[in-house]
Design a protein around this nucleic acid. Structure first.
Lengths: 208, 208
DNA sequence: CTGAAAATGAACCGACCAGTTTATATTCAG
DNA sequence: CTGAATATAAACTGGTCGGTTCATTTTCAG
C-alpha cells in the first residue's frame, strides 16, 4: 500500500465522510442534518467521523471550502478573456446564475446567513473563496477590456460589484424567500441579457 | 373601559408581548431567542404568551408583518413622485439601504432564509409585505416618469427589479457574510449614486 | 363586593441532538 | 501469525428548548 495516501489523507474513510457530508449538507443545509445522518449516509460510524473532524462545524467548513473551490474553477474555465466584453459578461452572468440557482449555491448561502452569528468564520470563508474571487477576476478583466478600448470604468471595484448583483435582479430575492424556486432558461436569459445591456450602456464605449 | 379595545386586541398584555418579542427578535434573530426570553422581557408569563399566540412561529410572523409594514410606510412617505427621476431614485436607494443595513432588515432577512424550509410561509409573507411593495411602486413610478418623457423602459418589471439590486451592490453580500458590518455614509452614497447613474445611462432620455 | 376572566410561575414533558465512551471486531504491515 | 492501528455499534451524557398543565393569585366589570 502506498505510504503517501496515509499521509495525505488521514485515513481510509476520510473521503467517504466528506462525500456523505457534502451530499446531505448541500441538499438540506446545516442545522437540519444530524451528525448521525451523515455517519449513516457515509457508511461510517459516528466515532470514526469524529476521529477525522473535531466537530460538525469543521466538517461543514471543509465541505464548503472544497465545493466553493470547485465552482470557482468551473466558472473560470468557461471564460475566454479574448472575447468581446459583451460575450464574456454573458458567459459570466449565466455561469453565476447557474451557481446561485443550484442546490449548492442556495444552501451555501442559507447556511452562511443562518449561522452567521454562531460561527462567523464560515461566512467570511465563503466570501473569500467564492464571491471575492469573482469580483477580483472581474476587476482584472475590466482593466484588460479598458486597455482594449471597449469600456471606460472610473470606479472598477464598484463596477465589479454591480454586474453580479445585476445578474441576480429579481431572481435571487424570489429564490431565497421561496416565492419562486424554478427559473426557465428564458427567464435567466432575460435577466442576464438585461444586465449586460445595462452594464454596457453605462460603461461601454460607443460604437466605432 | 372602551369595549372595542377588548375586541380589537385580545387582552391587556397583547402589545406587551409583541413589543418584547420585537425587541428580542430584531436584535438576535429567531432561533437564538427562546420563548422564555421573550416572556421574561415582556414581563409576562409563558402561559400568557401562549394564550395569545399559538406558537413561536406565529408570534414571529406577526412581529415581522408589523415591522415590514412600518418600514414600507416610512420609505413611501419620503418619496415625492413629482421630483425628477434622478432625485426620486436617490431617495429610494438611500431609504432602501437604510432598511437593509438596519438591525431589523438584516435580522428579518436572516430569519427568512435560515428558516426557509422549516416554515416557508414566512419568506413569502416577507416578500409580499416588503420587497414586493417596493417593486410595485417602482413600476408605477416608471410609468409616470415615462409619461413625463424622462425615461424609456421597455421591460418595466425588469427595471424595477434591477434598481434595488443595484443599490445593494457590494454592500449586501459583505454584510450577510460578516465581512463588513458597518458602512459609512460615503460608502452608501457611492453605491447609490452609482446605481442612479447606471440606471439613467440605460433608461434615461438624453438631455433636451 | 363578588365572581368570572385573565395572568402567574413553576414544575414538568418529550423530543432532539452534539459529542463521548466502551467493549468488540476488522484491517493490514511486517 | 501477530499485534497495533483503525473501525464499529450502541448505549449514554448533558444540555436545550418548545410547549403544556395546574393550582394559586390578580384584575376588573357590573
Amino acid at each position: 500500500m502506498n505510504k503517501n495516501s496515509a499521509i495525505i489523507r488521514k485515513g481510509r474513510k476520510y473521503d467517504q465522510v466528506l462525500d456523505g457530508a457534502r451530499d446531505l449538507f448541500m441538499a438540506h443545509g446545516f442545522e437540519s442534518i444530524g451528525v448521525d445522518d451523515i455517519a449513516r449516509r457515509a457508511d461510517v460510524s459516528k466515532a470514526t467521523l469524529y476521529s477525522y473532524f473535531p466537530d460538525k462545524r469543521m466538517l461543514f467548513m471543509e465541505v464548503a471550502r472544497l465545493e466553493c473551490q470547485r465552482q470557482a474553477e468551473t466558472l473560470e474555465a468557461a471564460v475566454d478573456v479574448e472575447q468581446p466584453v459583451e460575450v464574456v459578461l454573458g458567459v459570466v452572468g449565466r455561469g453565476l446564475l447557474e451557481i446561485v440557482l443550484s442546490e449548492f449555491g442556495w444552501n451555501m448561502f442559507r447556511v452562511c446567513i443562518a449561522e452567521g452569528e454562531r460561527f462567523p468564520e464560515l461566512g467570511q470563508q465563503f466570501f473569500e473563496t467564492g464571491p471575492k474571487i469573482l469580483i477580483d477576476r472581474m476587476c482584472a478583466f475590466l482593466e484588460i477590456a479598458e486597455a482594449r478600448g471597449e469600456v471606460i470604468v472610473e470606479d472598477r471595484a464598484l463596477a465589479a460589484d454591480q454586474f453580479p448583483e445585476l445578474c441576480k435582479a429579481g431572481v435571487f430575492l424570489r429564490l431565497v424567500t421561496g416565492v419562486q424556486t424554478e427559473f426557465s432558461q428564458d427567464e435567466i436569459d432575460r435577466v442576464v441579457d438585461g444586465a449586460v445591456e445595462m452594464f454596457m450602456a453605462r460603461y461601454g464605449v460607443k460604437a466605432g
